[in-house]
Design a protein around this nucleic acid. Structure first.
Length: 263
DNA sequence: CAATCAACCTGGGTGC
DNA sequence: TGCACCCAGGTTGATT
């Protein structure tokens, strides 16, 4: 999503904001956000964990989290309005950036670059950067008595993993999702580290996973769902050993795994 | 501090 | 058809 936005938005100026649901704005008050955003040029597009960051010429940053069902759409003025569009940023080229979010769990925030961005404060390393090493992962898991999967979902050990990609990473590293985090051997941590990176790289390459509502900035589905090995495949044969994939609940989240391969 | 769990929302699917 | 119930790519704040 960020790569697509980067090809379309830099250089555009925001000429207005239409707010259909104020709850989608997390900070500051809607009035202030509009005042600070209108007239500003979008200069940079970046990402931290699951947050997209739109850098404005004023050094304010628009920070977007899609929640469970959110999407950002780049449309032309007058294009048919999708359902559940909560915010619309009007652009100076007759375009629009629409924030669509059925379940209203997504948020848009505006923070100055000097301001401490709370969502980022306790976030762990970027999984695709060199600073995320197997040794660092091992150090973060060591001594932890909680379950591995909820820890990986917590964004503090490593940023950006959600329920689908955690299940996929655990499948490919052949680790049971109910393992205690601190119990992994060095070899297992190495496999997990490698699997996290390969799964994320493959999912980005596949332009995302459309299991239900994920859509890119043009409204198109991703393609990675066809390459999922565990998530959502309950009852279907494991791609490694043929045993039926099972669904259990771990940390309150639906969890798919192969009870034969994942120890 | 760490772990657990309800709460926030809307809609799709299933079974009776 | 209607209705109850379960499930869903996430995070946070209250409670153990």
């Amino acid at each position: 999503m960020v790569r697509d936005l980067r090809a379309r938005l830099p250089g555009r100026r925001i000429t207005g904001v239409d707010i259909a649901f104020t709850g989608s704005i997390g900070y500051p008050e809607p009035r202030e956000l509009v005042d600070r955003v209108v007239g500003q040029e979008i200069v940079t597009i970046s990402r931290r964990g699951k947050y997209a960051v739109l850098g404005l010429a004023s050094d304010d940053r628009l920070i977007v989290h899609r929640g469970m069902t959110g999407s950002l759409l780049v449309r032309r003025r007058g294009d048919d309005l999708e359902s559940h569009v909560r915010l619309t940023f009007l652009l100076d080229n007759d375009g629009e950036l629409r924030f669509r979010d059925m379940r209203k769990f997504g948020r848009v925030l505006l923070m100055h670059s000097g301001e401490r961005a709370l969502p980022f404060e306790k976030m762990g390393p970027e999984p695709l950067r060199r600073s995320f090493t197997a040794a660092r992962l091992a150090g973060s898991l060591q001594g932890r008595s909680g379950l591995l999967k909820p820890l990986l979902l917590g964004q503090r050990v490593v940023a950006g993993l959600g329920n689908i990609y955690v299940d996929e990473a655990l499948f490919h590293s052949r680790i049971h999702p109910r393992r205690v985090a601190g119990s992994l051997s060095e070899a297992e941590v190495g496999r997990l580290h490698r699997a996290i990176r390969s799964v994320l790289n493959a999912a980005i390459e596949g332009r995302g996973t459309t299991f239900r509502s994920y859509e890119d900035i043009n409204g198109n589905a991703g393609a990675f769902q066809s390459r999922l090995a565990a998530y959502g495949r309950v009852g279907e044969p494991c791609r490694r050993c043929g045993w039926p994939i099972e669904r259990i609940v771990v940390g309150g989240r639906g969890t798919y795994f192969c009870p034969h391969c994942q120890i």
